[in-house]
Structure formats: C-alpha cells, structure tokens
C-alpha cells in the first residue's frame, strides 16, 4: 500500500512539475516577430495543463475587410505540429493550417464578415506541447 501511495505522489509531482514548466511568455517575442507586416493584437498561451483532450480554444471578434494572421510557435520548430482550426461564430470550420500532411506555421485569413471567430489548437501531435500563438491584423 505504501508503494502505491508513493507512486501516486510521484505521478502527481511529475504532472505538476511538467505543467509548471510551460513559460509561454518567454516564447512570445520571437513569435510576434513572425507577424511581419501584420500589426500585433495579442498572444494566446498554449499551456498543456489548460488543454481539454489536447485542445485549447480562444475566440476573438474579427472585423470585415481586415486580414488576420494566426501563428503558432514552440520555440524549437519552425512549423510545430499543432493544428490550428479557424471556425466562425456557428463553429463551422473555415480553415486549418494542416494541408496534405504539412503543418503550416500560421494562417492568413482575409475576413469579410464581422463576428466572433474561434481559434482551436490541437496539440496532440506536437513534440513541444507548450507553445504560444500570436494574432495580428492589417487592412
């Protein structure tokens, strides 16, 4: 019984330790620099401890006649294996960064309908689960 209890404590300690290691803030400046001609709006921390079934979801009101760029960075890979899915206010899938097995590091999205859009990140395939996403805009 003592052994089982120790194992349980060990597993919990490792879980908490892994979660505490995700410092998405440190990844943000390099990720923001990838926005190029897009003006920075905000960062989304992709913290695996906050993921539900390896998925993290954020929303933002996109404006008509504005182009947005959603990028993802893990600090190690140029194109992290993280699928970004962009959905409209009815949760209809509009685009993903995954095309024929290739993960693109971001999606440039030209918006023609003002409304709430969802950015859904799937980290299940990623080698580095802790990452950051940057959102930028341009007219």
């Amino acid at each position: 019984m003592k052994g089982l209890l120790l194992n349980l404590i060990l597993v919990l300690s490792i879980t908490f330790s892994v979660n505490a290691q995700c410092d998405a803030d440190a990844l943000a400046p390099a990720c923001n620099s990838k926005l190029g001609a897009f003006t920075f709006i905000k960062n989304y921390k992709l913290d695996p401890s906050k993921a539900v079934n390896n998925v993290l979801e954020f929303s933002y009101v996109f404006s008509k006649d504005t182009q947005y760029f959603v990028s993802v960075c893990d600090g190690k890979n140029d194109s992290p294996k993280m699928e970004i899915t962009l959905m409209d206010s009815n949760k209809k899938v509009l685009a993903t960064n995954l095309e024929k097995g290739t993960y693109y590091p971001g999606i440039a999205y030209k918006c023609s309908t003002t409304g709430i859009y969802y950015m859904v990140y799937n980290i299940s395939e990623a080698s580095e689960k802790c990452a950051v996403s940057a959102l930028g805009f341009k007219k």
Binding site: L86, L94, Y104, P105, Y109, S112
Partner: peptide, 25 residues
C-alpha cells in the same frame, strides 16, 4: 451576410484563406 466558400492558396509558404462572403452593414 451571404455565404460563399472561402478561397485557399499557399503563398510563400503561408496558407492564405480569403473569405468570400458578402456582408452588408
């Protein structure tokens, strides 16, 4: 809003998606 399917293309290694809806405010 009148909904139309988006156009997708890859430009310089970036995935570009253009929404083709027609929204009138």
């Amino acid at each position: 809003t009148e909904y139309h399917p988006p156009t997708i293309e890859i430009v310089n290694g970036v995935k570009m998606v253009s929404e083709n809806n027609k929204t009138v405010i």
